[in-house]
Design a protein around this nucleic acid. Structure first.
Lengths: 229, 229
DNA sequence: ACCTGAACACCGTTCAAGT
DNA sequence: ACCTGAACACCGTTCAAGT
């Protein structure tokens, strides 16, 4: 018990690089996806950021699809596992959906991945939770499946849209202008034929994303409540 | 035996190949997408099917993203333009959504494309139509945007799921088995923790796709009706 | 068991050269 | 104006060879 101090650290070992592991690979992939965008994730870039060869990565993950799924699972599973609180069942369902909303806002590439591969393991946990919520809300057994599916689809649609928006913003910064140009191109100089689209464009410029998400969610919840007993 | 007519085939004109055009390129792309799947569409395959060089295609379409968008637009726009009939406004909205449903069932790659690039021109027309429907249903102006967005997102989520399912079916034929294995992997031998997921799996095996789609749609319509002034 | 990095089999896209 | 097809700059993935 003598030996105070940092004797174990005295002669610091030469900066030895930590060995690879599946977790480190996934963590590095997430860092690239978050920091440089979806297109920046290549096995070469990943190998460089891990100071290794591109072939080494294949020892820890089967292929790129698996890597993307693992990255998605990593950021999604915890959020979903911890969500679902709320005094009323409908609040619990809202809380689960908002958990996914927040993850996608923070990591838009998760939206892309969910839109391509909806049934990640974490989404199964999500389905379980929201089904339990609908059940507690009094939705009849026979309609549980429809309600759960509808909510998941609403979520996936939001994921797709958010991811596409993030991709576009990534390369042309000016969100408002992009939108105006887009609507103008759509309506091709006949704005009178597309009054609602122009309303959409105005709302898109001013709306609060989270609020709109919740409003859509509430439509489904109201529809589900409508099915009670 | 030796001489059965066929005189109409006498001195056939020399097989002169028709010149390329944007429409022919898009049509050939659709044929490949429908017949051989999304992965089969490459500029080389396209060039071969058109008996030309891969570089020639670039004279008619800017790049692959544009080509995919044009193909999507081609199969989607007509369906959407002709849809929206119905005596009651809600029926009209249903009819528009079902139009997209049918297109995706017939061309699953449209689902993939919509999930990646939601705001194709045809989708703008769709938004216009369903907004008009909600308006006619009595939804207040301030909620039109939410209702339209929610319906579009539900549609996009369905598109993503249908496309993913089609991709999986494409390479492993046995739909039922794929599903069972998937659910088994998700629930990792603790089926008691995932009762609703097992319900989902059972329903997925037996449900009618169109009916489920409509049921989810009606949740949103019911929610919207709930907003009536 | 784990890592290296060159090599392979593709891609989308470009472009000098042809008609 | 339109087409050709080789060439370029990437990819994901493999694999003999190293430790």
């Amino acid at each position: 018990m003598s030996r105070m101090g940092m004797s174990s650290n005295d002669h610091q070992p030469k900066q030895q690089k930590p060995s690879l592991s599946r977790e480190r690979v996934v963590a590095a992939a997430i860092a690239i996806l978050d920091g440089e965008g979806e297109n920046a994730l290549t096995f070469r870039a990943l190998a460089k950021s891990l100071s290794t060869g591109s072939g080494a990565i294949y020892w820890h993950v089967a292929d790129k699809r698996t890597l993307l799924a693992a990255a998605t699972e990593h950021v999604l599973s915890e959020a979903i596992a911890q969500s679902g609180r709320g005094t009323h069942p409908a609040d619990a369902v809202r809380d689960v959906a908002l958990g996914v909303f927040d993850v996608i806002e923070a990591h838009p590439w998760v939206g892309t991945e969910l839109a391509r591969e909806p049934w990640q393991p974490a989404m199964t946990t999500l389905f379980e939770k929201i089904s339990a919520g609908f059940d507690a809300m009094g939705v009849p057994r026979s309609a549980l499946f429809y309600c759960g599916s509808a909510l998941v689809q609403y979520l996936l649609g939001f994921a797709a849209q958010a991811a596409a928006a993030a991709r576009h913003d990534f390369q042309s910064q000016d969100r408002t202008e992009v939108l105006t140009t887009l609507v103008a191109r759509w309506t091709q100089g006949e704005p009178a034929d597309y009054p609602y689209v122009h309303l959409l464009a105005d709302e898109l410029r001013s709306h609060d994303e989270r609020e709109a998400f919740l409003a859509g969610l509430d439509l489904i919840l109201a529809g589900a409540r409508n099915l009670q007993g």
